[in-house]
Nucleic acid binder design. Structure first.
Lengths: 189, 189
DNA sequence: CATAAAACCGACCAAGCGGTCAAGAGTGTT
DNA sequence: AACACTCTTGACCGCTTGGTCGGTTTTATG
């Protein structure tokens, strides 16, 4: 009988996924080379191609893992209402800034059939958030409900662009502020 | 005496700037080739290099023009308070979605010395918005003022990501909703 | 009308890219 | 111990890229 895959196969794959995500996010997915990503991970380029079929497959795994985690976290927080959701999302982005950034500006470079399952994850997030908004502020027509839901995502997704750890409000402090802001804002629309 | 530059020099440069911006935004700056941009503009690649020194110089001109316009528009709207500012920014993004998208995800690819003047424009925008927020909601400490200001920018900058012309709320309708949302939200922080 | 520079182009180039390959080293199974 | 397969690598390949160059056409100026 042949030997199977190594016991630490998944860990090494995970290391490459994490290292490449950081490298891709820092340099921009298109501009970042596989040679550079390999160096960042401390392995040869050929080894990455042992674990992944292509640069696109690697990106897909990064985004799929990230979005799956995010959906799981958010589904667990549905019981805590809109403020709980906002807190959960911002907390989940911690240690995942790179993956989050990639999701926002590299997902579109994947071929449509690879995008589809990732977009399905995103839709699930939007649906959960939309339900929480509708529960907090009933009676909005569909167009306005969607607009307000996306407004909340704008707030959350923008956070990584301006926040610098150790400066200004902490993540948790901002989560509280954002929850207050959204809660009050919903009364005005 | 030699002949000077053509009378329509600036117009042609502007056409290249606009065409390239659309092409860059559609395909992503890094992924988009100068050959493709030239085809989009209906000129040869060599002609673009007659008007611009490099791909980076072209991107710089796109962003500098866009941000200068934006600052001008916003400075004109300072008298109309925070709702007027929100309306003005969203209106200014019309017909400039491409430039806006490029600003968000390609500015960072420029070398620092080219980024500097663009970031100065951005800071001016932030300062104006911050003043409007402070006027609407006095008494916020600096950290929270900054956080709320960035929250507003998150709302505005995210708009192009989810809005599809002709579907859902119009730009103007969303501007009104966003102004209401922010106005009410400020009372909750 | 002569002229010198701007406006414009097709063909070309070096460099870096994603990806492949042949081969050696390491290891679970028999 | 022998096998069969995974793990790991440096060298390599075809292709696209940003950018250049020599040359032709056009036009403002004297």
């Amino acid at each position: 009988m042949p030997r199977g895959i190594a016991r630490d196969h998944d860990e090494k794959r995970g290391l490459i996924r994490k290292g490449a995500a950081a490298y891709f996010a820092r340099h921009g997915y298109d501009r970042a080379s596989m040679t550079g990503a390999a160096r960042e991970c401390g392995v040869s380029k050929a080894l990455i191609y042992h674990y992944y079929d292509s640069k696109e497959a690697l990106l897909f795994d990064i985004l799929d893992t990230h979005l799956s985690d995010l959906v799981a976290v958010v589904e667990d927080a549905t019981g805590e209402g809109l403020p709980g959701l906002i807190r959960a999302v911002l907390a989940a982005y911690e240690d995942a800034d790179a993956e989050h950034k990639l999701q926002l500006d590299a997902l579109g470079t994947l071929p449509p059939e690879m995008q589809a399952p990732l977009i399905a994850h995103q839709r699930r997030l939007v649906a959960i958030m939309s339900d929480a908004v509708a529960a907090t502020r009933p009676g909005l027509d569909p167009d306005r409900l969607r607009a307000v839901t996306m407004t909340v995502f704008g707030i959350l997704n923008w956070f990584y662009m301006w926040h610098r750890p150790g400066r200004g409000l902490s993540r948790a402090e901002y989560a509280a502020l954002a929850a207050d802001f959204v809660g009050a804002g919903l009364k005005g629309v």
